[in-house]
Design a protein around this nucleic acid. Structure first.
Lengths: 183, 183
DNA sequence: GGGACGTCTGAACGGTCGTTCGCCAAGGGA
DNA sequence: TCCCTTGGCGAACGACCGTTCAGACGTCCC
C-alpha cells in the first residue's frame, strides 16, 4: 500500500498509526481491515518485496557480463538505481528490521546476507584475477553497499544529477575503491 | 544516561518506554523524573552531545597536518574510530532525527551540514591542488561519510579487525576513492 | 423485489504510553 | 530529638494504540 510506504518512511513504523494511514486514504482506521490482516503484515510485505526485488535486480545486472570489473560496475549501478528509485522502501528496509516479527525478520536478514555475499564474490574474483587490489575485500564490499544507502536519504528526481549520472559516478567510485581500470 | 543509550539504540526511541529504562536500572518509571525532565530531554542530550563530539574529533584530526591527502586520511580515521567506539550513539543519531522536537532537530541538522561541508572542503582543496581526482567532490564526500556509518552496525570490539586496522583500511579506501597517492 | 456480498463506519475493547501526585523511608544538620 | 531534603514508589491521569464488532449503505445476481 502506497500510503503506508510514505508514512512508514517519513515517521517510522511505530510512529505511524493505522488512523494516520487511513486518513491519508480518506477513510477511518477500521476500514483498513477489509483489505489487510494487520499492521505488521503491511511491514512484512513491504520489506520482503523490497529485498527480493533488490536481489533480483542485482543478479540480473551481474549476469549480463563475464568481465569482473564490468560486473562490479553494473552491480553498483543497479544498486544505486534501486536506491534512487525506491527511497521509501529502502529507508524502511534499513530502519525497521527490529520491528519485524519472526520469522519474517530472519528471512529478510538472510536475503541481506545473500546480497552481501554476492558482492564479496565479485570482489574476490576480481582480486583472484589480479584485476582488483584491496586490503580487505570484505570491507570494500561493506563500503560499497553503504555508499548506496545514503542515496535514498538525499536523492530526489529533480536534483542536479540525473539517475543515470548518479549511477555512472558511483560505478566509477566502486572501481576506484578496488583500484581497477574502468571496464 | 547509559541505560537509555543502550535501549534507544536497540529498540528505537519510540520502541523504548520509560518503564523499560527504569527497569534496566532496577527502579520504577516515576523515579526517573527525579533526575530528568522528560524522555525527549534524554534524546536531545544524546544527539546533541554525539554530533558535537564527532565534529570536535574531526576538526582536531584535520588540524594536525597541512597535507591535504593526510588530512583526508586522518579525517576518515577519526570518522571510523568514532563510529567504532560509539556505535549506540551513532545509531541513534542516524535513526531518530525525526523524533527530535524543534529546535533541537534543526540544531542537529545544522551540525550535520557543517560536518559534511568540512569534508567537501578537504576534497575540493585536494582537487584544486591536483592531488585528488574525482568526477564529483560532493558525491565522493557523501560516499565517504556513508562508508563509516555502517561500521556502527557490525563492528564490535572483539572482532577480527582491531579498531586501528579498521581505521587504516578505511583511510586507505578514502584515498583510493579520489585516486590519491597514500600520504 | 429480495437476499447476498463487499465496503465503510461509530463505538468500544483492553492495553500501553509519558507523566503527575501524594506518600513514605532514609539521612544529615541543628 | 526534630526537621528538612532527597529519592523511590503505588496509584492514577488522559491520551493514544491496534484491533473487533455490529450495523448501515450501496451494488450485483436472481
Amino acid at each position: 500500500m502506497d500510503a503506508a510506504l510514505t508514512l512508514f518512511a517519513e515517521r517510522g513504523y511505530l510512529g505511524t498509526s493505522m488512523r494516520d494511514i487511513a486518513s491519508q486514504l480518506g477513510m477511518r482506521a477500521p476500514s483498513l481491515y477489509n483489505h489487510l490482516e494487520s499492521k505488521q503484515e503491511l511491514l512484512q510485505d513491504i520489506m520482503l518485496r523490497t529485498m527480493e526485488n533488490l536481489v533480483a535486480d542485482h543478479q540480473m545486472a551481474v549476469a549480463t557480463t563475464n568481465d569482473v570489473a564490468e560486473q562490479l560496475r553494473r552491480a553498483m549501478e543497479a544498486h544505486v538505481r534501486y536506491h534512487a528509485r525506491h527511497p521509501r522502501e529502502v529507508r524502511i528496509g534499513n530502519a525497521e528490521i527490529w520491528n519485524l516479527e519472526q520469522p519474517a525478520q530472519d528471512r529478510v536478514r538472510k536475503l541481506r546476507r545473500d546480497y552481501a555475499r554476492s558482492w564479496q564474490d565479485v570482489i574476490n574474483r576480481g582480486v583472484d584475477e589480479g584485476r582488483f587490489q584491496t586490503p580487505s575485500p570484505q570491507l570494500a564490499s561493506y563500503a560499497m553497499l553503504e555508499m548506496g544507502i545514503g542515496i535514498s536519504l538525499w536523492y530526489h528526481e529533480g536534483g542536479r544529477l540525473s539517475e543515470s549520472q548518479l549511477a555512472y559516478y558511483y560505478g566509477d567510485m566502486a572501481l576506484r575503491l578496488v583500484s581497477a581500470e574502468s571496464g
